[in-house]
Amino acid sequence: MSSSEPSTIRDLPMSASQPSAVGEAPIPSGESNPIREAITQALGEHKVILFMKGTPEAPACGFSARTVAALQSLDVPFAAVDVLPDPRIRQELSAISNWPTIPQLFANGELVGGCDIVTEMYESGELAEALL
């Protein structure tokens, strides 16, 4: 956890926070990229973080819902980011993770997987260990 300037987190629509107010223009590569920086910071600050469609309370996609259910049944605390308010969140996230689909679950800054992998790991009992 960084003690200084955790404020870029608010650029992402974290669960239960206000939606972001970012604009529509694409971000040229090589220039300041606040969305990518906010994602990177969020990955560093949250041990377990899920990028999903909708919120844990109101998932907007069955795959996101299933992934949330697996985490909740393990009783693992996790941060959640809704990618829907701004398409650039998904673009930047996929560029960082080299993973094309949503949801994406990260633990300790590393991609654990999407819905299929998380479900498989939950059923095999591996998921809890991966989130330690």
């Binding site: 993973w99 094309p100 689909t101 991609l111 997987g113 999407g114 299929d116 992998i117 790991m121």
Partner: peptide, 10 residues
């Protein structure tokens, strides 16, 4: 890994 396997398909 599973992630690498899925990436090959994606």
């Amino acid at each position: 890994s599973r992630i690498e396997q899925h990436r090959l398909v994606y």
